[in-house]
Computed example of a mutant assay.
Amino acid sequence: MCLGIPGELVGFVEDQPDLAVVDVSGERRRINIGLLRDEGLEIGDWVLVHVGFALTKLSAEEADAVRGYLEEMGRASSGGIDAVTEPAV
């Protein structure tokens, strides 16, 4: 199963046009936005992130819906959304 997590675009990486910084549930991560090069991404946009790549641009409503689904899924497995967004060690 593939799992995409919504992240809010909070910055771009200078001198690396395919990289950006997103906020995922309070955690900031660098991701590759090269697949969305033609989407005209701006600070504040929401993207669906999977293994470090932005796969699609989302509306704020879509991002909220996905986050709600992930929270429900996490409660069902007793880990919460933090278990989904925690970096692997």
Rank of each mutant, 00 (worst) to 15 (best):
T56L: 13
L36C: 08
L35Q: 13
E14A: 10
L36G: 05
R30E: 10
I81C: 03
V10P: 02
S59P: 07
R37W: 09
G11Y: 01
A83I: 00
I43S: 05
G79F: 12
E14W: 04
P87T: 03
V66W: 03
A54W: 07
G79D: 08
V10Y: 00
I33N: 00
G34Y: 04
R29L: 13
R28G: 00
L70P: 10
E8W: 03
R28P: 00
L58A: 06
V21M: 06
D15W: 07
D82V: 02
I31T: 01
A20D: 00
L9R: 00
E8C: 13
G34H: 06
G7T: 02
G79N: 08
P87N: 01
R37K: 14
V84E: 02
G7M: 06
G11A: 09
P87Q: 07
I31Q: 02
L70V: 13
M1G: 14
V13H: 07
S25I: 06
N32R: 05
A63Y: 07
E62T: 11
R29Q: 09
A88M: 08
V10G: 01
G40I: 01
R37M: 08
A65G: 12
V84L: 14
L35E: 14
S59K: 05
V51Y: 14
V13D: 04
E86C: 08
L19M: 11
T56F: 10
D18R: 12
Y69A: 15
R29M: 08
V47F: 04
V66G: 01
E39Q: 15
R75S: 11
V10N: 00
I31A: 02
I5N: 01
G80W: 12
Q16S: 10
G7W: 03
G68V: 03
D82L: 06
G4V: 05
V24Y: 08
A60C: 04
G44D: 00
G4K: 08
A65Q: 13
V22D: 02
K57L: 07
C2A: 12
E71R: 12
V21N: 02
G74D: 09
A83L: 02
D15R: 14
G4N: 01
S25Q: 13
G11K: 01
E8D: 06
L48W: 11
V49Q: 06
G26M: 02
V22T: 04
D18L: 10
Q16F: 12
G80F: 11
F12V: 04
S59C: 05
V66L: 07
